[in-house]
Design a protein around this nucleic acid. Structure first.
Length: 335
DNA sequence: AAGGGGGGCAACCGCAAGACC
DNA sequence: AGGTCTTGCGGTTGCCCCCCT
């Protein structure tokens, strides 16, 4: 396959297009069609390379281009398609009439990607970020290490902050267990050879165990000086922890494993977004009274690469387990 | 009011693959 | 069958505008 020499000719104009150039290009294409892009510039009287003309036409001058802000529907469509197709901008653009791949790519890079990251999602896998490196900023904010270093605070308060960080890591790990294909394979597995046999109900119990821990955490830590964390005193610290996913933005779950793929926490129970369903299922709160001992095969939970099988990307790093996390009794239950 | 920095977007670059000769 | 041409695509760059200090 030979490569196009394209714009290596000297003397051809580059950079922003002038209105006169736009007019020439539009008039020529309206009259003759674009034909061969390589021949077009000369025929249209433009001192540009054909590639530049093609880009200008397809990304800006084409009459059917819809400009302006992306609607919520379009945003949701992009999210859904990106979770399936990855960075196949042209394929995504075919589902959004009037939008160009370039426009969608820019919108993704400048808005959606950041939005996902802020919400604790991996923009490549569309899954909650399970690696603690990715969550580190949150954890640091929670633990507020600067405050830990402050001798004015008693040891108990410092311990409470660390406990918050551990709690968040637990939540994210459980989300990972429930949402990743390897986790889903683990959950509900009836394979007697596998050490990792967490049933659906056990998983739900596990999730339901969090609020009580969270409440305990609230009792432990919410009396701390919220102001020092830069958090409004009217809202509990823990409620401002970015717990994902947020209910106001449904993330693509139709391509995820056939378990309940999205779980959000709210009120007295959990809301689950299941495959092929747009409406959430409410699961009543089950008191975490009889949580069975959980044993997870270490190798099976350390393969989050499988968690992004629907994407063309490699996926996140394996969960990182710091010492304080492993030493926690809760972790020993599942690890 | 002015300057610096960051964000957003248009355009470019280079690779890949199909079409054509 | 192999080389060249053309087009499409994704990643990157650079400019411009706006906001903050």
């Amino acid at each position: 396959m030979g490569r196009s020499p394209c714009c290596d000719e000297n003397g051809l104009k580059k950079g922003p297009w002038t209105p006169e150039e736009d007019q020439k290009l539009v008039q020529y294409i309206q009259k003759h069609g674009h034909g061969s892009w390589r021949a077009l510039p000369k025929l249209a009287g433009l001192n540009r390379c054909g590639k530049s003309c093609r880009l200008r036409w397809t990304n800006y001058l084409r009459p059917d281009i819809k400009r302006g802000k992306f609607s919520a529907d379009e945003e949701q469509t992009i999210l859904n398609l990106h979770s399936i197709l990855g960075n196949k901008w042209s394929a995504i653009a075919t589902h959004l009439p009037g939008r160009t791949d370039n426009e969608i790519k820019n919108f993704w890079n400048t808005h959606l990607k950041k939005k996902l990251i802020q919400m604790g999602f991996d923009p490549m896998t569309h899954r909650p970020r399970t690696d603690l490196f990715a969550s580190l900023p949150h954890l640091i904010a929670l633990a507020n290490l600067r405050e830990v270093m402050d001798q004015h605070h008693p040891w108990e308060e410092q311990a409470a902050r660390i406990q918050e960080a551990v709690q968040l890591a637990r939540i994210q790990y459980i989300q990972y267990l429930l949402q990743s294909p390897s986790g889903s394979a683990m959950i509900g597995s009836t394979n007697s050879n596998s050490l990792s046999s967490i049933t659906d109900m056990e998983a739900i119990n596990l999730m339901n165990s969090i609020p009580s821990s969270k409440e305990a955490m609230l009792m432990n830590s919410c009396h701390l000086e919220n102001a020092s964390l830069g958090i409004s005193p009217s809202q509990p610290v823990c409620d401002q922890i970015p717990f994902t996913p947020l209910p106001d933005l449904q993330f693509p779950c139709n391509i995820q494993p056939p378990m309940c793929s999205e779980i959000s926490q709210g009120g007295s129970g959990f809301t689950m977004f299941c495959q092929g369903e747009n409406t959430p299922k409410s699961i009543p709160f089950i008191p975490p009274t009889s949580l069975p001992p959980l044993v997870a095969e270490s190798s099976s939970c350390g393969n989050p690469g499988d968690a992004c099988s629907t994407s063309s990307y490699g996926g996140g790093a394996p969960p990182f387990w710091p010492e304080f996390f492993l030493e926690d009794p809760f972790v020993h239950e599942i690890a």
